[in-house]
Design a binder for these strands. Sequence first.
DNA 1: CGGTGTCCAGCGTACAGGTAA
DNA 2: GTTACCTGTACGCTGGACACC
Lengths: 225, 225
Amino acid sequence: REKIPEGTLCVVCSDLASGIHYSVASCNGCKTFFRRALVNKQAFQCQFSDDCIVDKSVRCGCRSCRLKKCFEMGMDPNAIQHDRDKIRYTKRLKKMKNEKACDDRDILNGKPIREEGENSPQSTLSLDDAIASPSSSFAGQSLGPASNGPYLDHDIQDVQAEMSSLLSDLLSLEHKLDGVRYSNKFPPHTSAASCMYDRRLLDDEAWLSTYTVPVASFKLSHITL
Amino acid sequence: REKIPEGTLCVVCSDLASGIHYSVASCNGCKTFFRRALVNKQAFQCQFSDDCIVDKSVRCGCRSCRLKKCFEMGMDPNAIQHDRDKIRYTKRLKKMKNEKACDDRDILNGKPIREEGENSPQSTLSLDDAIASPSSSFAGQSLGPASNGPYLDHDIQDVQAEMSSLLSDLLSLEHKLDGVRYSNKFPPHTSAASCMYDRRLLDDEAWLSTYTVPVASFKLSHITL
DNA sequence: CGGTGTCCAGCGTACAGGTAA
DNA sequence: GTTACCTGTACGCTGGACACC
């Protein structure tokens, strides 16, 4: 892990790089563009000759050539992560709450302000937490301490752990395969090989659908939805 | 005090454990995650059914279930220390000073920083050279075939073979699990209760009630292959 | 040397601004 | 005005590396 020198430029658009993103020094714009393109599986098409200039001032001109250059310069699709849990913007929310508090002093009849406790050291509960908390308090006591040991059933736990591990491997492999398929649409060196790549990928579509669908359904039932 | 065997896995996410953290073998990620969640008194909520899979590749998918599993597997909140002295990063500061001293003679030339090609003598690639030979041309020198470089047929085939193998393992495991599951009328329940009654945590009732819930059994039966 | 806490680069998402239909 | 999408910046989250004890 290294810090980039001050003034390093984005290898895609020559804007000021904000760090190493997906293995190459790049700016925030190209970093986000690359991620979005792959996550959304967007397929762009150049309206000209696939040789558009990609530079800071015109980087939004042709998204196809911009993405192509991202791959050419070595951006790594495998570095993309998937399906993180939702986050909250505490600092922004605090600002908004403070501003709203100021407004409410004048307006007097807006929404009731949440129990803030902003100054107390521990209450960092957000609005979402306040909504979520009143559900089912201490439901665990009914089942109680009878089921105590974490290893109640070795057999089933071992198998489940193994299956869980396998499924995780499967998911990461699917993501990896997505990256391979996607980046092959933009081979680093345009040559006769590209046609072979495409043909190969077309042949693989049947194979892929056999395995991608069940994994995708698993992903939907557990993570995405 | 014991040393963990080489290759011990994290009991939460099955990643490689870095040691005993908060009483259980765990990886750096789960260790830090557990500490942060408690120190910041973060209250997560599962967006699904409180039975998300927590594993290396998807451990960031649901923080609620990840923290729940931390407790279930025996992570001890009493092991968390508060209000320790600030640390000083002497070594890092020394490094930065040394690098700054070395930078005086090696003023940057705008080149994107790549790997330290210590065997490749061209430490002064121009921008034109970088464009003419993108990173993929270094694939022959780079060690990992999966990490970088051109995505060739054998890469796809490797991934496909790996997925196929995993899927067959998964199928046999599911059959095995079916047998085990039907021989046990009651699914395994574990309890996080013992860990939940830390006096410090009782201060925040809303936080507490979020996690004092019955632990649902692993439900893998709705995976359709 | 093992288990703490801390730092920070590189991930992610959320927001605000822009454009277009 | 409304709806929709795209873009780049701001900031939260993660985990590996390192400082303390």
